[in-house]
Computed example of a mutant assay.
Amino acid sequence: MAFPSQGYTLGDTATEADEARSTWAAVAHAVLEFEPVTMVVDPGELEIARRYLSADIEIVQTPLDDAWMRDIGPTFVYDDDGLAGVDWTFNGWGAQEWATWDLDAKVASYVLQQADVPRIASSIVNEGGGFHVDGEGTVLVTETVQLDPGRNPDATKAQIEAELARTLGATHAVWLPRGLTRDSQRFGTRGHVDIVAAIPSPGVLLLHDQRDPAHPDHAVMQEIESALEGTTDAAGRSWDIRKVPAPATLEDEEGPVDYSYLNHLVVNGGVIACSFDDAHDEEAAAILGDAYPGRKVVSVDARPLFARGGGIHCITQQQPTAP
Rank of each mutant, 00 (worst) to 15 (best):
V244D: 09
D42T: 02
G255K: 15
L140S: 01
I287E: 04
I199K: 05
V196G: 00
Q146S: 07
D148Y: 07
G137S: 00
L250Q: 09
T9F: 10
L10Y: 04
L228K: 15
G236R: 00
G294Y: 04
A20S: 09
T23L: 05
A115L: 04
P293W: 14
A173W: 14
A121M: 13
G309L: 08
V111A: 07
F3G: 02
R190M: 14
V141Y: 11
V27K: 04
I241C: 13
D258F: 10
A284F: 10
E254K: 05
V41L: 10
S226I: 12
F3T: 03
R50C: 00
H192C: 03
R242P: 05
G269L: 06
Y8L: 11
F90W: 13
V111H: 08
H192A: 05
G169I: 07
T167F: 09
A99Q: 07
L164R: 05
D183H: 03
G188E: 04
T142R: 01
I120L: 15
P256L: 12
T321R: 11
G310I: 10
P153D: 09
G85Q: 11
V193H: 01
C274R: 08
D301I: 12
A105L: 00
E161C: 12
T316N: 08
D154M: 11
G309H: 04
A67Y: 03
E47M: 06
P256Q: 12
G129Q: 11
G73N: 08
E229Q: 15
V77H: 09
T100S: 08
D252M: 00
S5N: 14
Q222K: 14
N268D: 15
D102Q: 11
A284R: 01
T62P: 06
I241S: 13
G236D: 00
G150V: 10
D104H: 04
A165D: 12
T171C: 12
E35M: 08
L205P: 02
D301E: 11
L112N: 03
V86N: 02
D233C: 09
V37A: 00
M39Q: 00
I120E: 05
A302L: 12
L228W: 11
D212R: 01
M39W: 00
D87R: 14
E143D: 12
D290C: 05
I272S: 04
E163C: 12
E282Q: 15
P149E: 07
L250M: 12
R242Y: 01
G82E: 02
E253A: 11
L103H: 00
V145F: 03
T232W: 05
Q96F: 05
R308Y: 04
P247L: 07
R303I: 12
Y52N: 01
D278M: 11
A121H: 10
D87C: 15
S201Q: 15
T15G: 08
A55H: 08
V107Q: 07
V267D: 01
H215C: 06
S201D: 11
V40C: 01
G203H: 03
Y8I: 03
R237Q: 15
D281V: 14
L103T: 02
A214V: 14
T138Y: 06
E225M: 10
D277L: 13
E127H: 04
D80F: 00
T100K: 06
G188R: 02
G188Y: 03
K106R: 14
R186E: 11
A279C: 02
E253K: 13
V220F: 01
A115Q: 08
D194H: 01
D79G: 08
